[in-house]
């Protein structure tokens, strides 16, 4: 019984520690007319001593959420898919226009009319984290 209690206590505190990542300024671009895709951005803060790895994203307003990045090489713009985003201990990682971003595809018809939406972020080894995002006109 003591062992089980200790295990539950340990799990509880581990859970609290692992949920310590902070998401700030999360927003998603209102999809442009005729398009079923857009991108989302945010600042991920990792105040812990462990590396954070964002591996997957889901949400209610689109079928697909993927991690992508942009790079410019000799004036050529390139977009590529990433498997994950790693946030080093005690550091921040910004998802921003022209950089790393969450590509949101097959958006539903409701998203352009919403002021807010949600996403669930899956960090490796952690409980899913639901976040709120402001839907903003992109320009």
């Amino acid at each position: 019984m003591k062992v089980i209690s200790l295990f539950l206590l340990f799990s509880l505190f581990s859970g609290l520690d692992l949920q310590a990542q902070v998401i700030e300024d999360a927003w998603i671009k209102k999809p442009l007319p005729g398009l079923k895709m857009t991108a989302a951005y945010m600042l991920i803060v990792n105040p812990t001593d462990k590396e954070l790895v964002l591996e997957k994203i889901t949400g209610p307003d689109a079928l697909y959420y993927e991690i992508h990045t942009h790079k410019s090489e000799n004036g050529i713009m390139k977009m590529r898919q990433l498997k994950s985003i790693k946030i080093a201990p005690k550091s921040k990682h910004e998802l921003k226009p022209m950089g790393d971003h969450i590509m949101v595809m097959q958006t539903n018809n409701e998203l352009p009319n919403k002021l807010k939406t949600t996403m669930t972020l899956y960090f490796k080894g952690q409980k899913p984290k639901e976040i709120n995002l402001e839907v903003k006109k992109s320009l």
Partner: peptide
């Protein structure tokens, strides 16, 4: 045209931005 193998997007288009 650059294939994105594991993406719902299927492919992206690298292009000159000018």
């Amino acid at each position: 045209f650059v294939p994105l193998e594991n993406s719902a997007m299927k492919y992206t288009v690298d292009h000159t931005s000018r």
